[in-house]
Structures are given as C-alpha cells and as structure tokens.
C-alpha cells in the first residue's frame, strides 16, 4: 500500500471547497440544535410569562380567600373553595399512593426475585402509560356510576396516577443506598425488617420525599379524571369528601377557559397562576433537594 502521499501534507490551511462546505454544514447544524433548545426555553417562557402577566391582574387577596361569585360570567369572588378542595383531594390521594408506592419499591428492591420483578415493573410502566382520562373512566365505572361524583373518587384516580411515579423514584433512591450499609446491618445480626426500616428507608427518605413532591405537583394539575369523577360541585367550601364532589382548581380553569365571557377568562388566568406557582415551586425545590440527596448518597 503506497497511499501516504507527501504532497497532501503541505496542503494544511489551503483552500478546499469540500472542507468549506462541510464546515458550513457543521456550523449550520450546530446552530439549528442550539436554536431548537432556545425555542423550547422560549416556549416555556412564553407560557409561564402569559400566565404570570394575565394571572397577576386577576390575583388579589379576595381571589384567594373568597368563594366564587355564582354563575358563568359573574364578576368578583375568588377560588378559595377550589384551593381547599384541591389540597384535600390531593392530600387524600397522596395518603393512599405514598405508602403503597414505597411498599412496591421495597418489594422490587428488597424482596422480588428476578422472576417476579419484571412483571411488576411492566405493570407500573403500563399504569404510568395509561391515559389519565381512561383512569377517570375506570373510576367512574367503579365508584361514580353506582353512586355519585365524590372527592374521594377523584382522590383514588389521582392516587393511581401518582403510584407509578412514586414507586419509581423511591426504587431509584433505594438502589442508591450503598451496599456497605446493608452489610453493616447484616453483620450486626439485625433482622431484615429492622434493617430496612431502620437503615435503608431513612437514608433514602430525603429522595423519596422529593420524588413524592414531584408526583404531588403533577397530581395538582391533573384535570382529565376530575372531569369525570369530581366536576359537578357547588360554590361553597366543603370537606365532605365521601359525600359530594369537591371544588378544585383544574376544573375551575377548564370551565372558565371554555366560557366565552372575558371575566371568566380572567378568572381562569388567576386560577392558572395559583396552580402554576404551586407546581413550579414544588418542582424547583424538589429538583434541588433531589440533586443534593443523590450527591449525598452517591458520594458516600
């Protein structure tokens, strides 16, 4: 093979049309990728910015503390009942999903065999991929059809939505707990359940809770199942979660957004601002905590 040519070496820095074209393509494509990232950030900024600007004009102390004025197109009043209601149904949903999610994650990391773990993981993935409106249809068929809409039905639907998210982050955190810790506990002759409850869970607790916050933030904004299970409600604040539908923020936004009255759009933006503030604060703090927790566990 006599391909090495001395002549080509002298060409360094010489004009080369092919190279110029390639360099141009390179620059163009890199610019496009950067622009795409910029576009995504811009969309986020525009959406959040719209909510901030349009929501701020609707926001006031009475908006947060009063119940709504009756009827579409009505002026005045607030969304106090919906804020209380959303908090209630999400809290009840979390009370069901969090313990169950932690138990499932414990099963997957501590008890499952290579044969039993994959089906459970698959089921969690499928649940996670199920459209939330279908989960609404499911709970409607299970609880609403024979009874009536209740806040509790909504809580169950939200719990099913949160469950795979919580199980997954918990599992991820449990896997980060160093094997040394387990070995140390084993070596002390501690029983397994004591080791799990005393060592494994506490050292992953921060991460589990931040994962839970992310799931809760998601549940707060979830609208589709509430539309079927918890959308026919009055204008008063109620805590009767088993008896009636409970007012909530997402359905308020949905209703008001579909209305033709400008005053309702203003209410929708105000409610959207409250919701997005809750969600962004939850997300940002959870992210910061999660990063810290990961560093703590991984850096041990």
């Amino acid at each position: 093979m006599s391909t090495a040519t001395g002549s080509s070496t002298t060409l360094l820095g010489a004009e080369d049309r092919n190279l110029r074209r390639r360099r141009l393509t390179d620059r163009l494509m890199r610019l496009s990728a950067t622009a795409a990232a910029g576009l995504a950030v811009a969309v986020l900024a525009i959406v959040v910015g719209s909510v901030l600007i349009k929501g701020a004009s609707a926001l006031s102390i009475p908006f947060l503390t009063q119940n709504p004025a009756v009827g579409l197109g009505a002026v005045g009043g607030g969304i106090a009942n919906a804020i209380v209601g959303s908090a209630l149904i999400v809290a009840v949903g979390t009370a069901m999903a969090l313990p169950l999610g932690i138990l499932i994650a414990l099963y997957l990391t501590e008890f499952a065999t290579p044969r039993t773990a994959p089906p459970i993981r698959l089921v969690l993935d499928l649940l996670n991929g199920t459209p939330t409106i279908v989960i609404g249809v499911f709970i409607f068929g299970l609880l609403v059809v024979s009874h009536s809409q209740t806040g509790f039905a909504a809580s169950i639907a939200l719990a099913i939505i949160m469950l795979p998210l919580m199980a997954r982050t918990t599992q991820e955190m449990l896997l980060l707990v160093p094997g040394d810790l387990r070995n140390a506990a084993h070596a002390l002759g501690v029983r397994r359940w004591r080791m799990i409850l005393g060592i494994v869970l506490p050292s992953a607790l921060g991460g589990i809770l931040t994962g839970a916050i992310l799931a809760i933030a998601r549940a707060f904004g979830e609208t589709a199942p509430l539309l079927l299970c918890d959308s026919v409600f009055g204008n008063t604040t109620t805590l009767n979660i088993f008896g009636t539908a409970i007012p909530n923020i997402p359905i308020d936004i949905y209703r008001y957004s579909e209305s033709g009255f400008p005053s309702d759009h203003a209410r929708a933006w105000g409610a959207a601002l409250v919701l997005i503030a809750l969600i962004l604060v939850g997300n940002l703090s959870a992210r910061a905590m999660l990063a810290r927790q990961r560093r703590k566990l991984a850096g041990r």
């Binding site: 995504a40 959406v47 707060f220 904004g221 979830e222 589709a224 997402p250 959207a272 969600i279 940002l284």
Partner: peptide, 12 residues
C-alpha cells in the same frame, strides 16, 4: 420543566 406545565394551563 416544560413537561411540568399542566395540560389544562397549556390548553388555556
């Protein structure tokens, strides 16, 4: 974070 924006707000 864009994924965290609830669909009802995106719809509005």
């Amino acid at each position: 974070l864009l994924a965290a924006v609830p669909s009802v707000i995106l719809g509005l």
